[in-house]
């Protein structure tokens, strides 16, 4: 018993030494259960977010205003399916099956990014999502390319490379609208008003209220805290909005030279955390619709997946009979 404990103890030491030396952890290496669980939760949520994230934007594929925009949007939404897939595969290396993760998503047990529970009533929402939501996602994701877990880091490298056009695509849409007719400008501003606060909230609760941050940072799953990333995001977006003549819907937004350890940054208004928790708990504008759409797709696809498995079995049997 003692030896077993001692053995685990030395494995943990070895694991921590690897983390400290910035070595990657690979699927078959020893890892503490909490590390595995944290990763499964985080990668799973990330994958679900990509998959559910297809819906609000997919909504506009058939109505995109030009062929060029239609093709970019299709390519972008398709990328999201790909990213979901890479991430599910990364989670599978930790022993969690795709089927389990899918069931958890469909039953409402698993979480995904709340941002996708907001609606996309206009074309400008597609611009705002690309610019703000993908912008926020990139802030979150770039540090994850250096995450300590090998398969996750590799998936993120691929994802970040592919996502490089997503935010530009969104900003270009907003820029074109902002330069356009009064109706277009108005559409752009309204979309910015809708998406600003949800995007700021995307980085999660503030550090003081975040339960998972400490371990994640120590294990180098996460490299920055929620508030650090949020600050980076606000600092990046404010001048971009100014450049195209749109107004960030925050009257308390102002330059604060004390931020970012004295190098300066934007101070922003109070975040409505009640709304944040309300949407997470399922009471957002589109929670039910998003989940229902995924459930419908899955249920209507059951006969297809059944047939594919059955066909594979028949082929295998025929092959064995021939041998």
């Amino acid at each position: 018993m003692t030896t077993e404990l001692q053995k685990t103890g030395s494995l943990i030491k070895e694991f921590e030494a690897k983390i400290d030396q910035d070595e990657k952890i690979e699927p078959k290496d020893f890892m503490p259960e909490a590390y595995r669980k944290t990763l499964i939760r985080q990668i799973g949520q990330h994958a679900h977010s990509e998959v559910v994230g297809m819906l609000p934007e997919g909504n506009w594929i058939t109505r995109a205003p030009t062929l060029k925009r239609k093709l970019s949007l299709l390519a972008k939404v398709q990328d999201e399916a790909g990213h979901g897939l890479y991430l599910y595969c990364a989670a599978e290396t930790l022993g969690k099956s795709r089927m389990d993760m899918t069931q958890e998503l469909l039953s409402g047990k698993a979480k995904y990014s709340s941002i996708f529970n907001y609606p996309t009533p206009t074309w400008a929402d597609i611009g705002a999502i690309g610019w703000l939501v993908d912008g926020a996602a990139i802030m979150n994701q770039i540090p994850l390319c250096r995450c300590s877990y090998g398969p996750y880091a590799r998936a993120m490298i691929r994802i970040c490379k592919e996502e490089s056009f997503h935010q530009r695509q969104g900003y270009e849409i907003m820029l074109t609208l902002a330069k356009g007719t009064e109706a277009q400008k108005d559409m752009a501003q309204r979309a910015l008003n809708r998406w600003w606060w949800p995007s700021v909230m995307m980085f999660g609760p503030s550090d003081a209220d975040s339960t998972n941050t400490e371990d994640s940072v120590r294990w180098k799953i996460k490299r920055y805290t929620n508030d650090e990333l949020r600050q980076k995001f606000v600092d990046a977006i404010v001048p971009q909005a100014k450049k195209i003549g749109l107004t960030i819907p925050d009257r308390d937004l102002k330059w604060d030279k004390k931020r970012n350890k004295g190098t300066g940054g934007y101070a922003y208004g109070k975040i409505d955390w009640d709304e944040f928790w309300r949407v997470i708990k399922g009471d957002g504008p589109m929670n039910n619709e998003r989940l229902a759409a995924k459930q419908r797709a899955w249920n209507e696809g059951t006969w297809v997946r059944d047939a594919a498995r059955e066909h594979a079995l028949k082929k295998q049997a025929a092959l064995q009979a021939a041998e």
Partner: peptide, 20 residues
């Protein structure tokens, strides 16, 4: 393209938009 996000598997959610 109407299939995007509604296919029977995630793999097909890539395939159909690819074709579209």
């Amino acid at each position: 393209s109407e299939w995007c996000g509604h296919a029977p598997t995630l793999e097909e959610d890539l395939a159909l938009p690819n074709i579209a």
